[in-house]
Simulated scan of single mutants.
Amino acid sequence: MEELIEAFSIDRIGKSGARFDWDKAQWFNQQYIKESSGTDLAKAVMKFAPDNYKDVDTDFLAAACDLMKERMTFLTDIWGKGYFFFESPKEYDRKVVRTKWKPERVPLFHQLKDQLAALDEFSTSNIEATVKAFMAEHGLGFGDVFQVFRVMLAGTKSGPPIFERQHCWAKLK
């Protein structure tokens, strides 16, 4: 409020009629969310938590908010766009499954899952090194693994960076 008062000037008031710009309002809201800490966002989003998410651990929620804040426009987006942090995906992106999923690679993905589950330290750098080494060993490219990996974890090909999800996805272990 103090910043607004300080920045206000009667000389800067436009003479034409004011018009509310919904897109600009959303952009401002998104900027505010991006600049907020995961902890602050976790406190704020809990006010809008659906009943089945009322008992989410606050540290876990703060980590999820940190990862999702680049993709959030409203505080409630964590529960909709980021629901996969709190429960298994409800559905899977059929287009990615149709174009990227190869049945003959099922044993490879089970092997990768086992390697990730066996990590002593489930950290960003360990996850990344394990996945990249696995890809090199089996002659797989990023497109062969990353989109399938995203869909397995989140049901969609979009979302936060894969390797930075360790705090929220340690439940895979």
Results as ranks from 00 to 15, higher is better:
M1E: 07
E6I: 15
S9H: 02
S9C: 01
S9N: 02
D11H: 01
D11M: 02
R12Q: 11
R12L: 13
I13T: 01
G14H: 13
K15T: 15
S16K: 09
G17A: 15
F20I: 08
D21P: 01
Q26S: 11
W27R: 14
F28N: 14
F28G: 12
F28Y: 14
N29G: 14
Q30D: 13
Q31R: 06
K34V: 07
E35F: 08
E35N: 11
G38M: 06
A42D: 00
K43S: 07
K43P: 04
V45K: 00
M46G: 02
F48Q: 04
F48R: 06
A49M: 01
A49H: 01
D51G: 09
D51A: 15
N52V: 13
Y53N: 07
Y53A: 04
K54C: 05
D55P: 06
V56K: 05
T58K: 12
T58L: 10
D59F: 08
F60Y: 15
A62V: 04
A62R: 02
A62L: 02
A63T: 00
A63G: 02
A64E: 08
A64D: 05
D66Y: 02
D66F: 03
L67W: 02
M68H: 07
K69A: 14
R71M: 10
M72S: 09
F74P: 09
F74L: 08
T76I: 15
I78Y: 02
W79K: 10
G80N: 13
G82L: 03
F84L: 11
F85H: 15
F85S: 11
F85L: 03
F86P: 13
E87F: 08
S88Q: 14
P89K: 01
Y92F: 09
Y92D: 07
Y92V: 12
R94V: 13
R94N: 06
K95M: 05
V96T: 09
V96W: 00
T99R: 10
T99V: 12
W101N: 12
K102Q: 11
P103M: 06
E104A: 09
V106I: 15
P107V: 01
P107E: 01
L108H: 00
L108K: 00
L108G: 06
F109L: 06
H110A: 12
Q111D: 14
L112N: 08
K113L: 11
L116F: 00
A117Y: 03
A117L: 00
A118L: 07
A118R: 05
A118S: 12
A118E: 10
L119D: 05
E121S: 13
F122Q: 05
S123D: 04
S125E: 08
N126L: 07
E128A: 13
E128S: 12
E128Q: 11
V131Y: 04
K132M: 15
A133C: 04
M135Q: 07
A136M: 04
A136S: 10
H138A: 01
H138K: 11
G139L: 04
G141W: 04
D144I: 06
V145R: 00
F146D: 07
F146H: 09
F146K: 05
Q147P: 13
V148C: 11
F149V: 12
R150P: 15
L153S: 11
L153P: 14
A154C: 11
A154R: 09
A154K: 03
A154G: 11
T156D: 05
K157L: 02
S158W: 10
G159P: 10
P160D: 06
P161H: 01
I162F: 10
I162A: 02
F163G: 00
E164G: 14
H167L: 05
H167C: 06
C168D: 03
K171I: 13
K173E: 00
